[in-house]
Design a protein around this nucleic acid. Structure first.
Ligand SMILES: [Mn+2]
Ligand SMILES: [Mn+2]
Ligand SMILES: [Mn+2]
Ligand SMILES: [Mn+2]
Lengths: 145, 145
DNA sequence: GTCAAGATATAGCTTAGGCTATAATTCGTG
DNA sequence: CACGAATTATAGCCTAAGCTATATCTTGAC
């Protein structure tokens, strides 16, 4: 049983800031997943084709096309019509950061007893909300075990 | 330095399933936050008024009204025009579950070295992606320290 | 009891992210 | 080297979630 400790109520403004932050994070989460995954495809196959992007994301092909358009708008990817998609320097850097964070989150989850498959499943959503500060705490914890 | 261990590439289908799961979770995350927060308001003030809901969520009042409409559609809340908002049994049960999970996530983060404020900030997004299985692992870890 | 202020609802707009159906392009095979 | 299959782009639709502006309802002060 969890003890019934009444929490000191949070100021409305502060709580609102937390929710705002969570909403901001969520708006870049999809971009992060696309960028990381496109990086994987390029590493594995030399290029990322729209059809493969769609398959790996579990979306329809036009949805992937639209996402790529957004990545291009944000300066994370480049592509020409009917050709493969590639990452810009910014995109590649982001992909690497996201990939590393993903691995750390999975490792942390497993370190506290979460089975690997579940860790992978939950990490796919959790990772985007892990701040730099929390990521550092995770790394310290993993190093100091 | 993180070691450069090449991961075994995940089957596209399995990875797609993870992304699908993350997107599903994301679609209920906002509902969870609204329900938990409305529960707080009712506990503190006896009722949840639309203006207070909007303030705490950091959204405009019509956005809160629309969210309440969705909660009603989903059977989590009831209200009559120009009156306060209340939770159904289902809504109250969900609020309690979400509140408990939130506390556990914050506790776990702090247990691995995340400062309280950062833990609260990150938990607001992380919590929604924590599966029952992961939640249990968190509880065991916290109990067995 | 009236009515002005405050709270809530409604109208109408935007963007992101899905979808299906179909048009346009590329490319391998014969 | 042509053409059919595969791939990609486009058109057009939907829902969720945000916003501002404005209409409508409630309520407390006089
Ligand atoms: Mn992810
Ligand atoms: Mn990931
Ligand atoms: Mn939350
Ligand atoms: Mn929460």
């Amino acid at each position: 049983m969890t003890e019934d400790i009444p929490q000191a109520p949070i100021p409305a403004r502060e709580q609102a800031d937390r929710f705002l932050r969570a909403r901001e994070v969520q708006s870049v989460a999809l971009l992060e997943d696309y960028v990381e995954m496109i990086g994987d495809l390029i590493a594995e196959m030399g290029e990322a084709r729209v059809a493969d992007i769609a398959e790996r994301m579990g979306v329809a092909q036009p949805t992937a096309t639209k996402a790529v358009a957004r990545l291009k708008r944000e300066g994370l990817a480049i592509s020409r019509p009917y050709r493969g998609v590639f990452l810009t320097d910014a995109g590649g850097t982001l992909a690497e950061k996201v990939r590393a964070r993903h691995r750390t989150v999975v490792a942390l989850l497993m370190a506290v007893g979460v089975p690997e498959e579940t860790a992978e499943l939950d990490a796919e959503g959790i990772e985007h909300h892990v701040s730099d500060q929390t990521l550092q705490a995770f790394e310290s914890f993993l190093a100091g075990r």
